[in-house]
Design a protein around this nucleic acid. Sequence first.
DNA 1: ATCCAGGAACTGT
DNA 2: ACAGTTCATGGA
Length: 305
Amino acid sequence: MNWTDYESHLEIYPPEDFNFEECLIFLSRSDREILHKIKSGSIYKLLKVKESLILFKIEHTENTLKVEFPISTPSIHLREKVAEYIWEWFDLERDLTGFYQMALHDKVLKKLVHSYNGLRIICMPDLFEALVWAVIGQQINLTFAYTLKKRFVEQYGESLCFEGETFWIFPSIEKIALISIDDLRKHQFTSRKAEYIIGIAKTMLNGELTKEVLLQKQDYEQVKKTLMMIKGVGAWTADYVMMKCLHNTSSLPIADVGLHNAIKNLLGLDMKPTVEEIKEYAVIWEGWEAYATFYLWRSLYDKKI
DNA sequence: ATCCAGGAACTGT
DNA sequence: ACAGTTCATGGA
């Protein structure tokens, strides 16, 4: 992590090939997103660290991320936690050289890495949030998924008001472990989704599942298998979480409809590719499947047909 | 109206 | 292992 603490604010120094504008495009993809706000090119987010609510603002100038604290400046310990969160959020530890070299030889990715150079996987550092968001997104369109997430956060999350705006924290494991399926059904969650989400909260509350334990496992299949033992987590969700939360660049949510559509658009296919065809495209991606997927998802935001 | 959406579990073979 | 079925709801 490359940063400096200036007591009143922080400066974080991303790698050369980091594109803040691309981050903003991704973070602006839904007007129903309530876990951060974008205002005048700056990102605002509320974070909870050890019972402290911290509102921070990220500005970008000359490839430096300047982090300020509009409400009050937290302690040095918490400032470091904020820096760590941001470093992880934008996957700043990643060296993308290998990805870009590989992509030059790939007909699918070649144009994308040129257009979106510096785009990094926008992560979800919190495992519970990543799992719940993935379950919410299963088999429904993204717009509705964001609606469900908004209801979920506004009903069960913590919030804080500042200058007439409300900032939200994703609901805690403790809180969700105690609600009932019917509580979520009132918000148009299907009973199945409700059951999965509450089950995940209960499993994590018992300490049976933590990000640390998953990160300790080195073997890709072992991590995936562990995740898939959770009811409601299939192959797609496991890969999604490995990609967005565990920073596993080899994860490939191969059943993903967005991935299929992106390839179809990009190659001008008449029909969406089959899983077998995607496996063939993905051979060259080895080691960078997650980044290939993320760049393909990004391409979906360009061409609204 | 109709199709389908950033799927998963269950069932039967 | 593998394919078909069911679940449920809103978006376009």
